[in-house]
Structure formats: C-alpha cells, structure tokens
C-alpha cells in the first residue's frame, strides 16, 4: 500500500471516529424538553443523520458502529449518561442498532440539494431507524408491532423536527467543506 492511499484510509477512519465523538458530545447536552411533545428530545440522532449525510453510507454507518462500540465498552455516552451492556437489553435498544441502518440510508440517499437531504434524513433518520427499533421493541416487550409503533409515535414529532434540522445543517456543511462523494 502506498503512503498516499494509506494516508487516505487513516483519514477516513479518523473522520468516522470524529463523528462518533460528535454523536457522543451531542449526548452530553441535556435532553431538550419541548412543550407540545411528551418526551424530551436528544440531539444525538442529529449527529447520526449528519454522519450519514457528510461521510456517506458506509463510513456514516461505521461512525455509528464506533459510537455504539464505545458505549458497549462501558462509557456513559448515551444521552442521560447511560452506557454499558445494560442499554443494549432495554426495550428501546433496537433504536440504537437502527441508527447504523439510519446513517447508512441517509448516506445512500443524500445529494447536494436541500430537498434530497431532507428526504434522506426522513427516510434514513426516521424510516430506517424505526424499521429496526419498532419490531425489536415489539419482540423484547412482548407486544404487537402495531402497539410498539403507537408507543414510538410519541417520539415522532421530535424526530421530524430533527430530520429537517439535520438536512439544513448538512447542506450548510456541504457548502462550507466539500468532502466530495467519498
């Protein structure tokens, strides 16, 4: 392997690690209570969608995997200061695993226009995440998929707001620091 291509590899990996750290840092912000929405929203999914939009599908997914790996190791970096094996056994653990699929889909669908980015964040950041999280919750909590979907609907308004915000932020980042298509 040449020095130049090796440098590229390491650079891509460090970018993934940096986004993993960004998702973690967003979790250190206190959850934001929103008046009309029953559950406080966390900024971490913003980081997940940005990882997909900025890094692309595979590297975006890798960034989320790195983040989840660090949480699994026992660092309390999930919003609310949670970490360790326990978080992967709760009823909402599927949503965390769904983040990997979410970042991948956002990266797959993202393009250099705001409507495309918004669509990508809606499909990936909400659709793909719920596609994993809702059946997982149904399985773990012993309820039907429809019931799990109703239970998750409380998070939907916050997630919609975040998807739009992530798309706007991703477009501005694309303008400010073009990473190419990699």
């Amino acid at each position: 392997m040449s020095v130049a291509s090796q440098n590229l590899d390491v650079k891509a990996l460090v970018r993934c690690a940096m986004f993993a750290a960004l998702i973690a840092a967003l979790g250190l912000l206190p959850p934001i209570p929103v008046p009309i929405i029953p559950v406080p929203i966390t900024a971490q999914t913003l980081g997940v969608m940005l990882a997909g939009a900025v890094l692309g599908p595979r590297r975006g997914a890798l960034a989320v995997i790195i983040f989840l790996g660090v949480v699994l190791l026992g660092f309390p970096l999930l919003s609310g200061g949670r970490g360790g094996l326990g978080v992967f056994f709760g009823p909402s653990a599927g949503f965390l695993v769904g983040w990997v699929a979410g970042a991948f889909c956002v990266g797959l669908l993202a393009a250099k226009s705001l409507p495309r980015l918004t669509a990508a964040c809606l499909v990936g950041g909400i659709g793909a995440v719920y596609l994993v999280g809702v059946p997982w919750m149904a399985l773990v909590a012993d309820i039907s998929v429809a019931q799990a979907l109703i239970a998750s609907a409380a998070f939907l308004p916050g997630d919609l707001v975040k998807a739009v915000l992530a798309a706007i932020a991703a477009r501005a980042i694309q303008r400010g620091y073009p990473l190419g298509t990699s």
Partner: peptide, 14 residues
C-alpha cells in the same frame, strides 16, 4: 485503538 481514540476525542469535540 479507534474505540479508545474516540473516547479521547469526546472532550475535544465538546
């Protein structure tokens, strides 16, 4: 290494 490196990056990102 990447996992440990990431933990080290969190305060920097903050």
């Amino acid at each position: 290494f990447v996992l440990v490196f990431t933990v080290r990056l969190v305060p920097f990102v903050s």
